[in-house]
Design a protein around this nucleic acid. Structure first.
Lengths: 156, 156
DNA sequence: ATGCCTGCAAACGTTTTGCACATAG
DNA sequence: CTATGTGCAAAACGTTTGCAGGCAT
């Protein structure tokens, strides 16, 4: 159900964006002595063409007909996370995955009724967080900020 | 490993606090036609006396010797969540549960090295969040804000 | 040719469910 | 007394692993 994502950095066309992300993945794999297989290519493609946050299940269902196994989806998601190309977020049900590259950091508003996920950018919040962390000597590495509630459509 | 919690609202003595939370649970159960059994009482007591965020495993290990089954721990945690007496947070490993009643809302700093969980109160952040939500017609019900990184001790 | 990658099936750890008995109200 | 709660064992679920064969480099 989740929708409403803007995947493309304004400076790049969708096509260029896809090429760019693909190149980054391939380079990152090479750097680690790993291989850019057709399965990994297709899983990344599926993530890029999606207009919502996909779960492992979503990916598997989309790609199983073409012969990709569950294990490979799990393993590829792990590699993508390790490359910081994909981030895992919690939906209302299962973990979901989103492409991060070339996209500004943002937080999530998750509708508990329809599952829609909206994205919010909160530079001011990030700033306050960093200041507080610095003050108490905590070195932030990543964070997860998810607000659950009713989206405007379901609020009625 | 997580520690460093302040469970008591400053206005209440620990003893009064425990009585209060217990009463709230009992009343909430009654309201739903459910029963305040000895198991539920003891699970809540365990959560109240804990000085850290407990996992289901923690609770089970603490209470199994006195004959409480795994199933009951899971089921009771579910009831407690439904009553909004307990909130589920992600640690570095498994889900953990914390009492919410009479405690001000706060966010979490999770150390990925030692597992320590520090709590932060960010009224200013909450305020910004609420303002944004109101602006776009999103009705927030709860939120999860967890920052992962290195605590001051592990930063060295 | 080598060594990483794949798919399958089996293992795994966590959470849920079906059931007969126990117990709170 | 009756409906809800309990504990056990088994099932279900999402995820990981071991292995034999496949493929990118």
């Amino acid at each position: 159900m989740p929708r409403e994502l803007v995947y493309f950095s304004p400076a790049l066309s969708p096509r260029d964006y896809r090429k760019r992300v693909s190149d980054i993945f391939s380079r990152e794999l090479a750097r680690q002595g790993l291989r850019f297989t057709s399965q990994r290519r297709r899983i990344l493609a599926e993530l890029m063409k999606a207009e919502r946050h996909l779960s492992e299940e979503d990916l598997y269902r989309a790609l199983a007909p073409s012969g990709i196994g569950r294990t490979t989806v799990f393993r590829t998601l792990k590699v993508l996370k390790a490359c910081h190309l994909v981030e895992q977020v919690s939906g209302t049900d299962r973990p979901r995955f989103e492409l991060r590259w070339e996209r500004p950091h943002h937080d999530h508003l998750v509708c508990v009724s329809c599952g829609r996920i909206q994205e919010v950018r909160w530079p001011k919040l990030e700033q306050i967080q960093e200041r507080t962390c610095r003050k108490i000597g905590f070195i932030p590495q990543w964070h997860r900020h998810e607000i659950f509630g009713l989206c405007s459509g379901c609020a009625r």
